[in-house]
Computed example of a mutant assay.
Amino acid sequence: MQYYLDLLSFGPEGWGDELLAGALVTISIALATLPFGLALGLAIALAKRSRSWTLRTFATLYTTIFRGVPELLTLYIIYFGVQVLLQGVWSALGLPGNLEMSPFLAGMVALGVVLAAFSAEVWLGALNAIQKGQREAAAALGLTKWQAFRLVVFPQLMRVALPGLGNNWMVLLKETSLVSVITLQDTMFIATRANVVTKEPFLFFGAAALIYLFFSVISTWGFDRLEDRANRGHARAGASR
């Protein structure tokens, strides 16, 4: 038992500090991806509701592609393929040096475009749940389209979309483990390296599982609080009727 505790301890003899650093990378890339993916997803959802056939077609193709292609393949395409493409453009412009994409940025972009495809459907469902009369009332009050969206539509949109976005976040947390294949030293990367050195797969992959589980439990609690807060006024209005 002491042997396993020593392996998980902090310091030069244990892997505790490396696992902690990997956990910080995991939550960092998830938090960096979330606003990018949700904002892009909202833009895709609005494009799906656009009067422009071009925008609707683009948005439909986007969600079809990135919901259908495996996340790992998307990660490889962006990290290796897009990097080669950017380097080609860089060289064609006659600029000196090499243009390299960091694993963190590549992981964030890859996970973000996939998150956008799934969150777009959540946003779209929430947009469809908001009655058209809300926008008409805002226009009657003299609000511009942007003001109506920011002050009237978006607060209601968040209330309706939060459960689905919470599920998207939970999936994103687990998908961060994929970035280990492009050498980003996240939780999964450290657990794999520790297993290779110590030949203790159950110990280190079990520790990685507990780290992901810890983040999931905290996230579930956080989203429950957000949903309670978002539904507070709505619940009172429903009770008064």
Rank of each mutant, 00 (worst) to 15 (best):
V171Q: 11
V122E: 01
L165R: 04
R241A: 07
L226P: 03
S119P: 08
I211L: 12
R49V: 01
L19R: 12
M108K: 06
T63P: 04
F10W: 13
T192I: 02
L42M: 13
F204Y: 05
T198L: 07
F204A: 14
G37H: 09
Q134K: 11
L19F: 12
G233W: 12
M101T: 06
E175L: 10
E71V: 13
Q83N: 11
S52M: 07
D186Y: 05
L73V: 15
G164V: 09
T198W: 03
A161G: 10
S102C: 03
G14K: 06
N168S: 15
A237G: 09
R49C: 03
A21L: 15
I130G: 08
G22Q: 02
A30R: 07
Q2M: 06
G88E: 11
L46C: 12
I29E: 04
N128A: 14
G81H: 10
T220M: 10
G107C: 02
L178T: 04
T63V: 13
I65R: 00
S50I: 09
V160R: 08
I130P: 04
F205G: 03
Y62C: 02
S91K: 13
G11T: 01
W53S: 15
A45M: 05
N231I: 06
E200A: 14
L184A: 00
P163T: 09
M101A: 03
